[in-house]
Write a protein that binds this DNA or RNA. Sequence first.
DNA 1: TTGAAAGCGCTAACAT
DNA 2: ATGTTAGCGCTTTCAA
Lengths: 339, 339
Amino acid sequence: MQPTIRDIAKKVNRSITTVSRALHDYDDVSEETKELVRQAAKEMGYVANKQAQLLRQQHTDTIGFILPTFGPRFSDPFFSEFLAGIGNAAAEQDYDLLVSTCPPGAHEMDTYEKFVQSRRVDGFIIVRTRVDDQRIRYLDSINFPFVAFGRVPGLEHIPYIDENSEQGMRLIVDHLVKLGHRRFACIAPSLNMTFATHRMKGLKEGLAKHGISMRPEYVLTGDLTEKGGYERTLELIGLPERPTAIVACNDLMAIGAIRAIQDSGLTVGREISVTGFDDIPISEYVQPSLTTVSQPIYQIGRSACEMLVDLLNEVAFDRKQILLEPALMIRNSTGIPIA
Amino acid sequence: MQPTIRDIAKKVNRSITTVSRALHDYDDVSEETKELVRQAAKEMGYVANKQAQLLRQQHTDTIGFILPTFGPRFSDPFFSEFLAGIGNAAAEQDYDLLVSTCPPGAHEMDTYEKFVQSRRVDGFIIVRTRVDDQRIRYLDSINFPFVAFGRVPGLEHIPYIDENSEQGMRLIVDHLVKLGHRRFACIAPSLNMTFATHRMKGLKEGLAKHGISMRPEYVLTGDLTEKGGYERTLELIGLPERPTAIVACNDLMAIGAIRAIQDSGLTVGREISVTGFDDIPISEYVQPSLTTVSQPIYQIGRSACEMLVDLLNEVAFDRKQILLEPALMIRNSTGIPIA
DNA sequence: TTGAAAGCGCTAACAT
DNA sequence: ATGTTAGCGCTTTCAA
């Protein structure tokens, strides 16, 4: 049994009130008593019961993070890196991190509601925002604190951090056009995710700037996994006139695309160039290495968490919205197209 | 303000005790009253305050999981998949998951101690067990519930789930020997991790069975990342007589190895064969695809969590130790060695 | 400078 | 079948 404040009180012959105040270094407690209490607490190995403390104070010192998992084979490096970011930031600020996993869909909202109604967390971090995002509409409507990784159209007032993916895509297009590409294909994620809309928008704008428009049959939807990228690419290659550049909306799909091209007996960076998005560590190690746009996921996780803690502490913070500028990483999966 | 049990009591004109019991479906409450209470609770949107409930019951319904993060570029797919496993299993059993991140080292133990002493979690799940594992020694010594992913030498009594990696390595060796390999090199993780010792043991035993012993200069240590595998492989290739097979102790390092071989102008599966371990999704998509041993990480996460919940509920469960049998995935990174 | 007492929201032993 | 009461461990108001 862990000792309580009461045990200390008994030992040092003071009231529990005094002990509590001494422990919190109130200045209406004599130095003498404080020392006595601290001493005893140390000896007895006293550590406050967080549950009791929090019940009393009516908050939880805990941040909620609900991982949108897609099926059992869930190993998007995005999430471990993001989680490391919020985890470290939370620990530094003395917050705990309550994680739950839930596939997006029907009872996803139950999970959120459960956490807020049972008062399990003080705020949320939301990832992979969606165009019509129930989670955010809900939290926003009841005024529950959260920070989103991703902007949401129509909800410009919410606190978010995001990358300027439009710009990222424009960088990619510029790079490919300069190499001589004109026939662009794209593997997009489902367009209900905001990041997909931004990337597609940037892609189209970038192309338009060069007087290029994308043929409808060149725009396919993948599920963000290697497998999705692989399958969609096979379809593209089977087209009567195949594209010379495949712009995948994330690295995992790009890696699948590379593989599909190779399996079809073509050379990546020659017959077909491929680009990704995210710059996950492995993109440097696939063969050929992947041209992509880097996104500092770990840092974004950190910032999101810090923003949320500021919000919870009502610290004035000017930039309630943060938009990060991306960087193009030119590697070997892109090259001059050959006939 | 959320309504409390007291508000319901007032509304239905009963005592809070009766309300509490009605809500928990005790059978010493009249059907009538129960219905009345349920009705009111629903109308008022009552949800129990978990904090209060738990303080009273002296437990937390929460499982702790401390992610051993190695630096900011932390994107080992292992962890997101494992986390998805425990997350889903925990949710099903109505447990919450408290996640913290901490690099292995000096104040890792502080994190564990903090969680147990402040009574924040009911039990832990431990990953990447180490040969002399302070975390486990600590939890075991104070009799705090936990389940480990990984055996620990000298602590055979602890509840664990693990893969028979000795056997996995033997499968790899048999496969390579059959192809004609005799000069084996290995990229091992630091040997303080138990899984590394098991894999190395299996490797050596497997080789011994065929009358092969590994030269000391062929055994290198990598840090489990692509980069580590890449660098160590470059060293191996620089050796006066280079190995024909490189056995990496995880997939990420194997992928780095493949890349290093290609960058040196050699062909993987011909001059040098490469094997991995884990069978992460991407191993199927690198070029050439990776021969490896599969480890059902998601399922292991699930099982670990279920074991822990059983432990917490003191449900008798016979197999306190689980050892999973591995499967060899033969792909294209291994082939007949050429001179 | 200290202590008594109330109370956070809930459950449960013990009455009735 | 229902209510009274105590108490989980803590913080804080108020009084001394």
